[in-house]
């Protein structure tokens, strides 16, 4: 019994210590604002690695999820004779929830894991140490551009996901199942509010982008510099990011849409 209590205490201490380290790490990264001349090219390079290279998976996933939403929505709504509301259903589902959440999950799996593995390997091969010894701060040179790139790329990817998803839903609903195009777009336009839906969805994707990028770079920077350590850190990035996104989604949804 005492052993279990001690193990629980140890777990708590480890968790608090890890949270403290990640907070200090984040402060260190944000405090060292990159110089515009040297920092901008590094940021652009990371935006390409983190954002542009994630486009394919985001577009394909968005298309299929939109198409599935079209099919499922039509099946359910046609029971009530309201299949014309399919556009409204697809748009609200994607813009409010699935766009930010699924993009963040894909982002954690595609870009987050890559960031962790890259930084972890740089640590294991002493590249970060050698940078420090050359008088170059790796937080500013390596970590900050990656954190900012993740933070900036996620909302854009989420928007692309939602747009492609709506288009996929339109393909199924309008082109395949024959829903009237005017009611598809008209219902969508009349029911989707910019501030309540689009902006709230955007805020969600900004929060998720920040959290996913933070977790990814921190796990890479803090990992045990061995192959097993990098493997474990990469797994942690995907698991922690996914849990954080789903948990935060509930909190944000309750705050944004929970005013009944």
């Amino acid at each position: 019994m005492m052993g279990r209590i001690a193990a629980l205490g140890r777990l708590g201490l480890t968790l608090v210590a890890s949270l403290g380290r990640s907070g200090r790490f984040l402060f260190g990264v944000l405090a060292g604002v990159p110089r515009p001349v040297t920092g901008f090219p590094l940021l652009v390079k990371q935006l390409y690695a983190v954002g542009v290279l994630s486009l394919a998976i985001v577009v394909v996933s968005g298309l299929f999820i939109g198409m599935v939403l079209g099919l499922q929505g039509y099946t359910i709504l046609s029971d009530y004779g309201s299949e014309s509301a399919i556009g409204q259903m697809i748009a609200l589902t994607l813009v409010r929830e699935l766009g930010p959440v699924v993009t963040a999950l894909l982002f954690a799996g595609r870009a987050g894991s890559a960031l962790t593995a890259e930084i972890g390997l740089m640590k294991a091969t002493e590249q970060l140490s050698s940078m420090e010894m050359m008088g170059v701060d790796p937080l500013r040179r390596v970590i900050a551009p990656r954190l900012w790139a993740g933070f900036l790329a996620m909302p854009v990817l989420a928007m692309i996901f939602s747009v492609v998803g709506i288009w996929g839903g339109m393909l199924v609903g309008v082109e395949w199942l024959g829903v009237f195009e005017g009611s598809f777009w008209g219902n969508m336009q009349s029911s989707v509010d910019f501030a309540d839906d689009v902006l709230n969805g955007f805020i969600k994707s900004v929060v998720f982008g920040f959290v996913c990028a933070w977790i990814a770079v921190y796990q890479g920077y803090d990992c045990v510099p061995t192959s097993a350590g990098i493997s474990s850190a990469t797994t942690k990035t995907v698991v922690y990011s996914s849990l954080a996104v789903l948990g935060l989604d509930f909190v944000l949804t309750a705050v944004m849409f929970g005013d009944f």
């Binding site: 002493e126 420090e132 050359m134």
Partner: peptide, 22 residues
């Protein structure tokens, strides 16, 4: 931190692995 990084500009270190940027 700043003074330490300035001092490190006067130091060179050869790591066991070389630590080249890959």
């Amino acid at each position: 931190r700043k003074a330490l990084y300035r001092l490190r500009e006067k130091m060179g270190m050869l790591f066991q692995s070389g630590a080249l940027f890959t």
